[in-house]
Design a protein around this nucleic acid. Structure first.
Length: 574
RNA sequence: GCCCACGUAGCUCAGUCGGUAGAGCGCGUCCUUGGUAAGGACGAGGUCACCGGUUCGAAUCCGGUCGUGGGCUCCA
């Protein structure tokens, strides 16, 4: 089915749902009910609070309507007729939506059964053309998405041409649920949160910490190898610092309240930049030492509203893979190109091959000289072009302090994640009066660029877990190899094999439980281990190991041969 | 923050009409010593998230708190 036909069908399904709601709850007021990529929704306002039980009744009423093959009838109205029409029905949200329609545009109403809706269309001919529908969830939603507006009730549903396609979609939802990082995080003992500690605050367990350590080590080495220096800065800073930076003025609601130290206010950091700037300000800087590229795995704390917290994806304490690039105007373009190239290198290393760029330009209210915005934007555009990236432009979507470029990566099941952000900042250099001495002996204002490539380690780890479904590639796996002795007489050989591998830097253990070999294999597979080495009488006698990878049995090789293979794989980040 | 739902053993979940709590997995002990996805027996483990109310009696009903989940313009 063509995209627009599917869209029309789902939009029609939304109308049918609204009609069913009107029938069951005559006092309902209607807002809007569009089709989405995955299905459709409709927003209602009514006295009755919808719960899961209501969905069944509404779905039944919808199916009845679908069976009756009721026509969708289009009527065009003048603005005045439409106003009178919806006013007579007490549909106040519709009147507001009507007022949004620009003058001169055609106003149409679609009627289906007893339900009439302000709607541009198009729709299917009659309700019988809507295939298999299923209502999924009920949720709250502010009118126009603004929390100052009344809270409406939203029902999400989906529709497909055939029952088989609907079943397939539900299966995909189930697949995504299986690789949910929260589920895998607890199954594989990667991380946890605790009521006693507080929401949005993550504890990394040994297995998760191992993976994080590998990521961090790779990240640090890569930064040193690519011209960065690393910084460590404190978690707290005086109120005066945050006044100078402007955070207390513009970012306060996301900061935790002050704590008093020696009768002075200190704040836990929501960002690392003011600290990096202090390091810069430590002495006068010459143009000869620019560009400076200073990176830090900086742990920051931000207040996020309770309702938006989500596993590792949205948390209150997290570690950014932050860096600040301070350079001269002449250096800026090469620097941006280099950041993009470096970012793509990291994504490739972690197994993400599809990356898309999103460029955000100057908003109406902005700080900084127009020439600087121009140059910044040009350097971003050139960099994107040189990197050969697909790019979408969001005109006026930049922050007030500078333009930015974000990268989105696509994971193994096609979902996009916003990760890398590269942002110019024309604000902080001014606020802190950052300067460098140029060849002319005068003070000049440097460019400053913030960039986080992975984003935050917590969120990136969550994405990584879902991307691989918990089955990390060998170089990242918390435990790379497990030695499985067939029975007790071979425990010593198993320990010796594990010892050899461990001495060679492999993350390995020996399963010395008194279980059958089948049970040991099952356990290791459930923990998504890349390699199992089965050892018994034959292997102990020959000094070999029987290799079992995720693909299955691979036969026996000498321990040396296996070690060489695993080392090569780890080296190649496979 | 707001709307809706959920919170029972470490995990996944059952628990009828209000009458003092159950399974599987996991964990412990013992038996079994095995050849590529679960060997067997026995046992321990619960302030039913927390606080309050209704009741002779609350996991169950009501209110509050905390936590978790789905969602909060893919623009008629």
């Amino acid at each position: 089915m063509a995209e627009h036909d599917l869209h029309a069908m789902r939009h029609s399904a939304a109308h049918i749902m609204a009609a069913a709601v009107q029938e069951l709850h005559p006092d309902a007021k209607f807002d809007i009910g569009p089709a989405t990529d995955e299905g459709f929704y409709y927003d209602f306002d009514m006295a009755h609070r919808l719960g899961p039980e209501d969905l069944k009744a509404i779905e039944r009423a919808m199916k009845k309507m679908i069976g009756r093959r009721l026509p969708f009838e289009r009527r065009e109205m003048t603005r005045e007729e439409a106003q009178a029409f919806f006013a007579a029905r007490g549909q106040s949200y519709k009147l507001e939506r009507l007022a949004d329609i620009p003058a001169g545009e055609t106003i149409s109403v679609y009627q289906c059964g007893d339900f009439a809706d302000l709607c541009r269309g198009p729709h299917v001919g009659h309700t019988g053309e809507v295939g298999s529908v299923k209502l999924l969830t009920v949720a709250g939603s502010y009118f126009r998405g603004d929390e100052r507006n009344p809270m409406l009730q939203r029902i999400y549903g989906t529709a497909f041409p055939s029952p088989a396609e609907l079943a397939d979609h539900l299966r995909r939802i189930e697949e995504a649920r299986k690789r949910d990082h929260r589920r895998l995080g607890s199954e594989l003992e990667l991380f946890s949160t605790h009521e006693a500690i507080g929401p949005g605050l993550i504890c990394w367990h040994p297995a998760g910490a191992r993976v994080r350590h590998v990521i961090e080590t790779f990240w640090r080495d890569a930064h040193y190898a690519n011209g960065y220096e690393l910084l460590y800065t404190p978690h707290l800073g005086r109120a005066t610092l945050w006044q100078t930076s402007g955070h207390l003025e513009f970012y306060r609601e996301a900061m935790y309240s002050a704590m008093q130290v020696d009768e002075q206010d200190y704040y836990v950091k929501p960002m690392n930049c003011p600290f990096h700037i202090q390091v810069y300000q430590n002495r006068p800087r010459s143009y000869r030492e620019l560009p400076l590229r200073w990176a830090e795995l900086g742990t920051v704390y931000r207040y996020e509203k309770g309702g938006v917290l989500h596993g590792l994806m949205r948390v209150r304490g997290f570690t950014q893979d932050d860096a600040h690039i301070i350079c001269t105007p002449g250096q800026i373009e090469d620097e941006i190109c280099e950041v993009l190239r470096f970012s793509l290198f990291l994504w490739d290393a972690f197994g993400f091959r599809e990356v898309k760029a999103y460029l955000a330009t100057r908003p109406p209210k902005a700080v900084g000289e127009p020439e600087r915005w121009e140059q910044a934007l040009a350097s971003l555009q050139h960099a994107v072009r040189r990197a050969g990236l697909d790019c979408e432009v969001d005109e006026g979507g930049g922050a007030f302090y500078g333009p930015k470029i974000d990268l989105k990566i696509k994971d193994a099941i096609g979902r996009q994640w916003q990760t890398t952000t590269i942002q110019f900042d024309f604000n902080l250099p001014e606020r802190f009066d950052m300067t460098y001495i140029g060849p002319d002996g005068r003070r000049h204002r440097p460019y400053m660029v913030h960039r986080a490539l992975l984003g935050s380690l917590e969120r990136f780890f969550g994405i990584l877990v879902e991307h691989y479904g918990g089955a990390f590639p060998t170089w990242l796996a918390p435990e790379q190899v497990r030695v499985l002795p067939i029975s007790e007489p071979f425990l010593d050989y198993a320990r010796a094999v594990a010892g050899t591998l461990r001495a060679a830097g492999v993350r390995v253990s020996a399963d010395t439980e008194a279980d059958t070999i089948g049970a040991k294999i099952r356990r290791a597979r459930n923990q998504r281990l890349p390699y199992m080495l089965v050892v018994g009488e034959r292997e102990a006698a020959s000094g070999e190991v029987s290799v079992r990878s995720r693909a299955g049995e691979e036969g026996s090789v000498s321990l040396d041969a296996f070690l060489a293979r695993v080392r090569a794989e780890i080296e190649a980040r496979g």
